[in-house]
Amino acid sequence: QCIKQELICKWIDPEQLSNPKKSCNKTFSTMHELVTHVSVEHVGGP
């Protein structure tokens, strides 16, 4: 049986000017979605 898990993006953008810096905190249900999000939204490139 599949256990529902919540994956949370903890990326902190080093360019943020606010202190304390905020992490992204978007939630995902699969590791694939999380990896895709980080690749596209934070790292950039294909």
Rank of each mutant, 00 (worst) to 15 (best):
Q1I: 09
Q1H: 09
Q1G: 07
Q1A: 15
C2K: 14
C2G: 14
C2L: 15
C2D: 13
C2E: 13
C2F: 08
I3D: 03
K4L: 08
K4I: 02
K4E: 12
K4H: 01
Q5W: 01
Q5P: 11
Q5K: 12
Q5C: 02
Q5T: 07
Q5M: 02
E6A: 05
E6D: 00
E6I: 00
E6R: 06
E6F: 00
E6Q: 07
L7K: 15
L7H: 14
L7N: 14
I8D: 15
I8E: 09
I8G: 11
I8P: 12
I8N: 15
I8V: 12
C9H: 00
C9Q: 02
K10S: 10
K10L: 06
W11F: 14
W11K: 14
W11Y: 11
W11H: 11
W11N: 07
I12G: 06
I12K: 09
I12F: 08
I12C: 11
I12Y: 08
I12H: 13
I12S: 10
I12E: 13
I12D: 10
I12M: 09
D13Y: 14
D13R: 04
D13S: 05
P14A: 06
P14S: 06
P14F: 01
P14V: 05
P14D: 02
P14T: 05
P14Y: 04
P14I: 00
E15G: 08
E15L: 13
E15A: 12
Q16Y: 07
Q16N: 04
Q16L: 12
Q16T: 10
L17E: 14
L17M: 12
L17K: 10
L17P: 13
L17V: 13
L17T: 11
L17F: 13
S18D: 09
S18H: 04
S18V: 04
S18R: 07
S18N: 14
S18Q: 05
N19Q: 13
N19A: 08
P20Y: 03
P20D: 12
P20F: 05
P20W: 03
P20N: 09
P20L: 08
K21N: 15
K21C: 02
K21P: 11
K21H: 11
K21Y: 09
K21F: 11
K22D: 10
K22N: 14
K22S: 09
K22V: 11
K22M: 09
K22G: 09
S23C: 11
S23P: 12
S23F: 13
S23H: 13
C24V: 01
C24T: 01
C24Y: 00
C24E: 04
C24A: 01
N25G: 14
N25K: 12
N25P: 14
T27D: 12
T27W: 06
T27C: 08
T27K: 14
T27Y: 01
T27Q: 13
T27V: 12
F28G: 03
F28A: 01
S29K: 11
S29D: 15
S29Q: 13
T30M: 01
T30P: 00
M31H: 15
M31Q: 15
M31Y: 06
M31I: 15
H32N: 14
H32I: 07
H32D: 12
H32V: 07
H32S: 11
E33W: 00
E33T: 00
E33H: 04
L34D: 01
L34P: 05
L34R: 02
L34M: 12
L34I: 01
L34E: 02
L34G: 03
V35L: 08
V35D: 15
V35Q: 15
V35Y: 14
V35N: 15
T36Q: 12
T36G: 10
H37Y: 00
H37K: 01
H37M: 02
V38N: 11
V38R: 15
V38S: 14
V38L: 08
V38F: 12
V38C: 10
S39M: 06
S39L: 05
S39A: 13
S39T: 10
S39C: 10
S39F: 02
S39K: 13
V40P: 02
V40Y: 06
V40H: 08
V40D: 12
V40E: 12
V40N: 12
V40R: 08
E41A: 10
E41F: 04
E41W: 04
E41V: 09
H42L: 00
H42N: 00
H42T: 00
V43S: 15
V43T: 13
V43R: 14
V43A: 12
V43Y: 15
V43M: 09
G44K: 08
G44C: 10
G44E: 07
G44W: 09
G45H: 04
G45T: 09
G45Y: 03
G45F: 07
G45W: 03
G45N: 06
G45D: 11
G45P: 07
P46S: 09
P46K: 15
P46N: 09
P46C: 13
P46F: 02
P46M: 14
P46W: 02
P46V: 05
